[in-house]
Amino acid sequence: MGDGPPSLWEWFGRNWDTGRADSIRTLLTDHVTMSLVPVVLALVVALPLGLACARWRWLYQPTSGLMNVVYALPSLPVFMLMISVTGLSQTTVIVPLAFYGVAVLIPAVVDGLDSVPDHVRQSAVAMGFTPLRRLLAVELPIAAPVVLAGLRVVAVSSISLVSVGALIGQGGLGGLFTRAYQNPFMPPVIVGIVLVVALALVADGLLVLAQRLLTPWVRARKEAAS
């Protein structure tokens, strides 16, 4: 150990698990929670809304218009606004991120259902599917690839956006960036960027894997087309 500033690796080792709230490990766990809970919430909310928009077309325009407005709101003021409702908790970050996710997923669900060919839907009706069973066994599985593509966008952008929460004290790994304001010391910034990107890649990779397992027929279609 010299007298100068610690190296990147040294700094990482020393701060990984200090047992304090600002140890890298805790920040990482917080980051995962605050970015993935909104993704799950967004999916749960967007599915029924998307189904409703696909079923009653007149709903789609106003809903997607509203959702675009939500998506356009800058995250920082929204977080600040949320503080008055939920205080300085993780919820303050989770709720707005869930809204952003819904904004992306509603069109994905609608587009996914639109991708069900009419002759497939017709034949499902003619075979004697009840509407609910047709939705669950035919329409949603066929819509799945489009919905999963939307989910990938939501997961990655959510992981990236959590960092902004650091400005209200709830940013997971984003906390490493705000420190650099007070003290021009680079290792935390680099570690933060690397971990956020790695987290995004892992999440995306898992979703791609899920897509392969859930929709093996998509590959069959691609092979048949080539």
């Binding site: 034949s123 009706v125 003619a126 075979m127 004697g128 027929w217």
Partner: peptide, 22 residues
């Protein structure tokens, strides 16, 4: 009841209408 009726009647359409995911 339509679903019951339809399960007892075979139906073939122009583009086959097969389920792509099955």
């Amino acid at each position: 009841d339509p679903p019951t009726l339809r399960r007892g009647i075979g139906y073939v359409i122009q583009q086959a209408g097969l389920f792509p995911h099955r």
